[in-house]
């Protein structure tokens, strides 16, 4: 029994999950039942995958011991690159490949610069955030190009499932979440990610190629962000250069709320997703409860601080429950 309790207290995403349930009940009551209505859920699940995909990448990278503040800018740059290419007649698949290659290049550069010059990734990717955002605006030429009308939008945004509740993007998100989650918990590469972020000198001494592991995580993070940006642009129907602003910090907040440690080694993809859902629920719930929308950032901010404090408290408590090891 004690043992079970300890295991649960050590799972930081659990606290977030409890809070989520609480908020859902609260908002459901406050909104007079609108919150869990079909239409609201449909809107909710339609937007969720975009931020969740970003948070998945950020969570993995944080577990590996690094940050990426350029995700919001990459979120805008990737679909803008595609739109500009398609405006000159390049086909969708070719533009998709080019867009993803841009993401790979940015992730590679983020990782390479961080490791080669031993600078905090916080700084490298802060710089990259400005660079990528600027590039997005510059290549758009001021006016966002029109998207061609014959895009396979259905593959990403059309409604599917029971009662057309979900968009295709949700299925992409589910598949990617499961894959990345398994990668982290069930593969040797996932073990290396945790070791690298958990204690770098030990991982090095055990012969883990830590530089390459980190660079791979930077690339994963960039690619997922760019892909998420593409989904949003296809949903909105137009590539705006300003999308994804502020997303980098929300993604970090989501990861932290879901129990990811700021100094690496600890965390789970599932936790990051719970974090995103919490943030979206608060956003959506506040609006439905007709609270002034400006309270949104206040709520996310307090939640982040609360989550970190609660997690460290829980972990300490769990440690003090003595079960024999």
């Amino acid at each position: 029994m004690k043992r079970m309790l300890k295991i649960y207290m050590e799972k930081p995403e659990l606290a977030a999950l409890l809070l989520l349930l609480l908020l859902v009940v609260l908002f459901q009551l406050r909104s007079g039942g609108v919150f869990l209505s079909f239409d609201n859920l449909r809107g909710f699940f339609g937007i969720l995958p975009e931020m969740a995909l970003v948070a998945i990448g950020v969570t993995v990278l944080m577990i590996c011991g690094e940050f990426d503040l350029s995700v919001g800018a990459v979120f805008a740059l990737m679909p803008m690159t595609m739109a500009v290419l398609m405006a000159t007649g390049v086909s969708f698949p070719m533009a998709l490949v080019a867009g993803l290659l841009v993401c790979v290049a940015i992730g590679l550069l983020n990782g390479y610069l961080t490791i080669r010059f031993a600078i905090p990734s916080f700084i490298t990717t802060l710089g990259m955030m400005f660079v990528a955002r600027s590039l997005t605006v510059v290549i758009s030429g001021g006016f966002p190009p029109l998207l061609p009308t014959d895009l396979p939008t259905w593959l990403f945004t059309s409604f599917v499932g029971p009662g057309q509740l979900l968009r295709m993007s949700f299925l992409w998100f589910l598949a990617i979440a499961v894959l990345v989650s398994l990668l982290l918990s069930r593969t040797n590469f996932g073990n290396w990610i945790r070791a690298t972020g958990g204690f770098l000198p030990a991982a090095d001494a055990l012969g883990i190629p830590t530089a390459r592991v980190k660079i791979a995580c930077f690339i994963l993070c960039s690619v997922l962000s760019g892909f998420a940006g593409l989904i949003q642009v296809l949903r909105l129907g137009s590539p705006l250069p300003s999308i994804g602003e502020g997303m980098e910090l929300q993604a970090v907040a989501a990861a932290v709320i879901g129990g990811t440690a700021l100094n690496g080694g600890v965390g789970a993809v599932f936790g990051g997703i719970i974090g995103v859902i919490l943030i979206r629920v608060i956003d959506n719930g506040l609006i439905l409860s007709q609270v002034d929308a400006n309270w949104f950032k206040f709520a996310i901010g307090s939640l982040t601080i609360f989550a970190v404090v609660a997690n460290s408290w829980l972990r300490k408590r769990a440690k003090s429950i003595k079960v024999e090891v």
Partner: peptide, 19 residues
């Protein structure tokens, strides 16, 4: 100091790099 990753389980630590 350098031989173990404290945030990982004993079983995982034993096999880091040689899983």
């Amino acid at each position: 100091y350098n031989s173990m990753v404290p945030t990982m389980s004993i079983a995982r630590n034993l096999f880091i790099g040689r899983e």
